[in-house]
Design a protein around this nucleic acid. Structure first.
Lengths: 137, 137
DNA sequence: TTCTAAATGCAAATGACTTGCAAGTGGATT
DNA sequence: AATCCACTTGCAAGTCATTTGCATTTAGAA
C-alpha cells in the first residue's frame, strides 16, 4: 500500500493507509460516510477527521487510485480504480453487480460517428437499476 | 399548458404555468437555479420563491411532465419528458446533444441475460462527455 | 535530530435542496 | 358572483453532503 502512495508522491500517513485498506478490503463501492464510519469502528483510526476522509478521497481520485461513481443516491461513491466496467444496482437492497461489455463500447463509437457536434467521447457513465433476484422474490 | 396541469389534477397557478413555459421554450436541460433566474428576469414572475421552484420541479417529475437528468454537475437538471434518449455533454461549454439508440437498448438486454443476480433492468442512465467540435478548435 | 512542506483537526462556511408553518388562492360549489 | 377549503406559496430555518480557513502537527528528506 505504501508503494501505491509513494508512486504518486503522496505521504504515507495513517489516514491514507487506513482509507486505502478499507477500499482494498471492501467488496462494494463506498461513500465518504461509509469510510468514515468504518474508521470510527476501529480502535487505531477512530480519531480520523471527516474532512480528512473527504480530502483523501479526492486526492485518491485525482491520483487514479479510486474512481467516482454516481448512483444517484445523494452522495458520491468510490471504488478502487480498475478495468473499465459498469454497475447494476438493486433499487431495494443496493446490491451492486459489476459487468463489462465490449458491445457497449462499440455502440458508443457508432453514436459519435453520427453526431453533428461531437467527434469523440472522452468519458461516459452508464448505471443500470433494477430489482435483484432476492428482492423480486 | 393548462391542459397538461389539469390532466394531472394540478392547480394551474401562475408559478406552475411560468415554469412549464420556461421548459417548453428551452432548448437545453435546466437546473432549479436556471429556472429561478429565468423567473427573476421576467417582470410578471420575478417574485416566485425558490422553494416553489423546487416544489414545482418535483411535482412535475412525479407527474411525468419533466424528467431528471444527472450530468454530475452538483445540481440536478430537468427537461420535458419525451421519448427516451441520452445526452452527450461538452466538458467545456456544456452544450448538450441528444441522441437515441436502439442498439444500446439491445445491448442492455443482453447484459441482463448474462447477469447472475438480476433478471431485468427497470431504469438506466447513460451520459456521455466529450469536447464538442467548437471547443476542440 | 532538525526542518519544512505537506497533512490534519476543528469549526465555520457553502450549496443545493427541504420543511414547518402561517397566510394566500384556485376553482368547485352554492 | 360570493363562499369555502384543500391545495399552494412565501419565508425562514433546517438538513445533508461536502469544502475551506487557519492554527497545529507530522512525514520524511536533509
Amino acid at each position: 500500500m505504501k508503494e501505491i502512495l509513494k508512486e504518486r508522491g503522496y505521504k504515507a500517513t495513517p489516514a491514507r493507509l487506513a482509507i486505502l485498506e478499507i477500499f482494498i478490503k471492501s467488496k462494494a463501492p463506498l461513500a465518504a460516510e461509509n469510510v468514515y464510519k468504518e474508521l470510527k469502528r476501529s480502535k487505531k483510526n477512530k480519531d480520523i477527521n471527516e474532512a480528512t476522509v473527504y480530502r483523501t478521497l479526492s486526492l485518491f481520485e485525482e491520483g487514479k487510485v479510486l474512481t467516482k461513481i454516481d448512483f444517484r443516491k445523494g452522495s458520491v461513491f468510490f471504488e478502487l480504480n480498475k478495468k473499465h466496467h459498469h454497475h447494476i444496482t438493486c433499487f431495494k437492497c443496493d446490491t451492486v453487480e459489476e459487468f463489462e461489455s465490449t458491445a457497449i463500447e462499440k455502440v458508443l463509437g457508432g453514436i459519435v460517428r453520427n453526431s453533428s457536434k461531437f467527434i469523440n467521447i472522452k468519458e461516459h457513465s452508464l448505471e443500470l437499476f433494477g430489482l435483484c433476484k432476492n428482492c423480486v422474490a
